[in-house]
Design a protein around this nucleic acid. Structure first.
Lengths: 141, 141
DNA sequence: AGATACTTGACTAAAGAGATCACATATATA
DNA sequence: TATATATGTGATCTCTTTAGTCAAGTATCT
């Protein structure tokens, strides 16, 4: 469960869209990059992946931007991390797959599973709600 | 908590030393690399780190090798992973540290903490014992 | 002396992460 | 219809990390 900048940015973008989901107009990339200091072209790349997943839709042209196309209650940080992040390999091919290696691999898997359980609990809507209740000025809307 | 090949090999080596800890003679690198298919010079590099940590001692010359210099009950997979693996950075410097970023970071930290708890439970002696009870032929000694 | 085994430091190849750029296309508004 | 505003797409690029290699040296046992 590696949290790269790519994954982090993807989550920021999804949260930003989730917050502004009720308002009619789509959210421009510029709005997100300005607010969070994310390199523009990089975020474009990430939003492309999110669109391919069917999680956001894009509206081109003037007044265009992005909008969530899924219910924010159904998407967790785990979903985003696993979809955007790099896929991990199974048992190492180079080294011999000894019983000891298998035992260790079980430990690595258990540890990863523990992480996944935490992130699988965190839905977008849950985070948005928590942020807005905890600190109304948090997202300076 | 990234488990690189380096960390995995370090754990294999420590476990191998823990198993043969009771016997008088030290364990040669060749013995470990042959058994587990680990590239020799790479394992040398790793054992050097382990020695710098004070966890193993080396005996040079003919009949030389490596030996644990700590109680295998006091070392966990977490200790090895954190000592050998790369050190992770804190809050990302590039992007703006917005409240949203902080909230996300908390989630990443919680997830990492969950992993750490799992690996922190796994002591070398515990793993050796488990392996030997579970399957006597596991380490074909 | 010679075989065995660790010591040390430098070095290289490959992969992935994190961007960046140029050019194309779509749409609202004046 | 012209123009400003936005996204779409593909290629490219640099930097860091990871994994692995090599050569020459030193210590110890038999």
């Amino acid at each position: 469960m590696v949290i790269s900048a790519r994954v982090h940015y993807a989550c920021v973008a999804m949260l930003e869209l989730a917050i502004q989901n009720d308002e009619g107009s789509p959210v421009a990339i510029r709005e997100i990059t300005d607010r969070h200091g994310i390199p523009g072209p990089f975020l474009v790349q990430i939003l492309r992946s999110l669109r391919a997943l069917g999680w956001v839709q894009s509206i081109r042209g003037s007044q265009g931007g992005y909008r969530l196309s899924v219910d924010p209650a159904t998407i967790t940080l785990l979903d985003i991390a696993e979809a955007i992040g790099s896929q991990e390999a199974g048992c190492r091919t180079e080294a011999t797959c000894t019983p000891m290696a298998v035992m260790l691999q079980t430990q690595w898997d258990d540890a990863a599973e523990a992480s996944r359980r935490v992130l699988g609990q965190a839905t977008l809507s849950g985070l948005v709600e928590r942020a807005q209740h905890g600190d109304a000025s948090m997202f300076y809307i």
